[in-house]
Design a binder for these strands. Structure first.
Length: 597
RNA sequence: GCCUGAGUAGCUCAGUUGGUUAGAGCAGCUGUUUUGUAAACAGCAGGUCGCGGGUUCGAAUCCCCCCUCAGGCUCCA
């Protein structure tokens, strides 16, 4: 592909504009240039490579290659070495505009490039060249390869051409790149730190949950300590919902297939449902959602406009078939418990209801200390139920509700579910990946299909407005986020074990048990480390378990009826009476405080 | 589901040009130690090397199938 001479036009423009480009923009350009340098390196090592696309992404870049043989991690250092040579040679980037005809000739052996050329609407296309590598590219690029100061190739992955799973899979190499070596090192360090907070790792270390080959992938077993955390969240959740006018309900885990045919789930979500089982000649499925049960409860009598809104809430466990490659710890599983609720209301009540849900969602996020989340308003997709006008109106209502609470949000165009617009709140986990948390969805489909109505003031039947919503997402995913958010250092109210009493020697055991029973009677989760081990070991163990309070008791404490309090932050509190400590702990629990002072 | 890589004791990991009864630390058990703020000492026990097939005189090691996991892609009501 090499050997053509290009006139440097854009690079000059870039130099002229350089003062105006922001640092972010500059970094993005550098990353993009890094992708080109990587492509050149791959071309020189594998001359038969076919080139896909190679954009800048968050933290770095990637390039997709079609190669007749698989790349292995061993190839990365070779490619890196070659890239470093190219960078050391500091070769200039040059660009040129050519006609599509010329471009097609140039890329005659590059099927992916030809496809891209065909899709560009303009008559001319632009090319960028550095060294022997020419690429179809909009640019811009850095002036020369020497401006790429710090990069590292991090992984190889398969990626469908054009993101379409029905097309060929190319091999993608991911790289990270920063403006300086220091920034790169800091980034890699951050990744390492994030990996330590990974809920899968902490879940094992802190004995919170497990997933078993024997039982099946994506099926979570909550250990006692994990179950405590979950139960506390559930209790809090239930109490808060009751305060806010929800009714708690329970619905069965299986139901007749016909129900799911009526709802349209069988038709639309067939791939996510587990196969039917036959019971007395009838087909049943395990529920993938809770909404139908709530609708059946609603429909047990004729409803008056006076009793709306009705809010049915359920910690409902559902099962969905997720493709094996997507499972991920607690975050993506096959059986999970949604903190679900369905609100049945009049259309004119919709805005207030959405405001209520948003306020609740925000309250929950704040309580658990989540400050990093993104709010998206997803609008009408191409295929949709109901009329465009109703969609329009409902979307406006969602927007107004967000505005009333001064919540910043972005529009996610066309990303609504087919049955209605929705508000999604995405949380970021320790590795910077966004996970779906709270979601509020208006549904125009089910009320129609199940004829969910109320009698209005006018004595006539009207369809209800229906809202599906969760404020945590699912218990599994939420706990995963919590583990990573706190790095396993749970606030006192959620800590599986809140206090560990550590006697210095066996003769202090009686005193230790006395403290234990007094704290336990206050509802504190407390244990005594009664092993004949040295103090240091017991401290270490409690530290590793991230127990908020360690009460060390020895001769001094027994003699003075005091306790010595060590925090997991390694801070040492002054010697104090048990009564004082009881007050400290119970307040920390009641106020759900996150820091230990 | 697709691509690449991985799977050795409860946990973290050693162990390949294929070669005796597969190792270590931690955890567990037993004993000694009675300890003052992040690991006392000694001994014991613990493994069909993910499953199943194959190649070979001989397989943790090489090949094939399957399962699971990791990182991506696609998907996520």
């Amino acid at each position: 592909m090499g050997g053509c001479h290009l006139i440097d036009v854009r690079t000059i423009a870039m130099i002229l504009n350089q003062d105006h480009t922001t640092d972010d923009k500059k970094l993005e350009i550098t990353r993009h240039s890094g992708a080109h340098v990587m492509a050149e390196a791959v071309q020189s090592i594998f001359p038969d490579a076919k080139f896909g696309i190679g954009p800048a992404i968050e933290n770095g870049f990637y390039y997709d290659f079609g190669l007749p043989h698989p790349l292995t991690p061993d190839d990365l250092p070779l490619i890196e070495t070659k890239m470093n040579e190219i960078i050391a040679a500091n070769v200039p980037f040059a660009s040129q505009e050519v006609t599509k005809e010329e471009a097609r000739r140039l890329f005659a052996s590059q099927p992916y490039k030809l496809e891209l050329i065909d899709e560009i609407p303009d008559e001319k296309v632009s090319l960028y060249q550095q060294g022997s590598f020419v690429d179809l590219c909009r640019g811009p690029h850095v002036r020369s390869t020497g401006e790429i100061k710090a990069f590292k190739l991090v992984s190889i992955a398969g990626a469908y051409w054009r993101g379409d799973e029905h097309r060929l899979m190319l091999q993608r190499i991911y790289g990270v790149a920063f403006e300086t070596k220091k920034a790169l090192a800091e980034y890699l360090k951050r990744l390492e730190e994030a990996a330590k907070r990974d809920h899968r790792k902490l879940g094992k270390e802190l004995d919170l949950f497990s997933i078993h080959d024997e039982a099946g992938p994506g099926l979570v077993h909550w250990h006692p300590k994990g179950a405590i955390i979950r139960r506390l969240i559930e209790d809090f959740w239930r109490d808060e919902h009751i305060k806010r006018g929800y009714d708690i309900v329970y619905t069965p885990h299986i139901a007749k297939l016909d129900l799911w045919k009526t709802s349209g789930h069988w038709e639309f979500y067939h791939d996510y449902l587990y196969s039917p089982m036959e019971v007395e000649g009838q087909e049943y499925i395990i529920k993938p959602m809770n909404c139908l049960g709530h609708i059946l409860i609603y429909k047990t009598k004729v409803r008056s406009y006076r009793e709306l809104p009705l809010r049915y809430a359920e910690l409902g466990t559902v099962y969905r078939y997720e493709r094996s490659g997507v499972l991920h710890g607690l975050s993506r599983v096959r059986g999970f418990t949604q903190d679900d609720a369905h609100i049945f209301c009049r259309f004119d009540q919709l805005e207030d209801e959405v405001v209520g849900v948003l306020d609740l969602a925000r309250f929950m996020m704040n309580t658990f200390g989540f400050t990093n989340y993104q709010v998206l308003l997803a609008t009408r997709p191409e295929k949709y139920a109901g009329s465009a006008e109703v969609w329009e109106e409902a979307t406006e209502i969602l927007g107004r509700a967000l505005a009333r609470l001064n919540i910043n949000y972005n529009i996610d165009p066309g990303e609504g579910v087919f049955y209605g617009p929705k508000i999604d709140i995405k949380l970021e986990n320790a590795l910077g990946r966004a996970w779906q948390g709270p979601t509020i969805q208006v549904d125009f489909n089910l009320p129609q299909r199940f004829d969910v109505t109320y009698i209005g003031e006018d004595g006539k039947e009207h369809l209800v407005a229906m809202v599906h919503r969760t404020v945590l997402g699912s218990m599994e995913r939420f706990v995963a986020s919590l583990i990573e958010h706190y790095g396993g250092v749970f606030p006192v109210w959620l800590a599986p074990l809140q206090v560990m009493v550590i006697p210095v020697a066996d003769r202090h055991l009686d005193y230790a048990y006395k403290l234990e029973s007094q704290l336990r009677s206050k509802g504190v989760r407390v244990g005594v480390d009664a092993r004949s081990e040295r103090l240091n070991l017991k401290i270490r163990q409690a530290q590793l378990d991230k127990v908020p309070y360690m009460l060390v008791v020895g001769d001094k404490e027994v003699a003075n009826s005091t306790i010595s309090v060590r925090l997991r932050s390694e801070e040492q509190l002054p010697s104090q009476s048990l009564d004082d400590f009881k007050e400290t702990v119970t307040m920390a629990i009641a106020d759900k405080i996150t820091d230990l002072k």
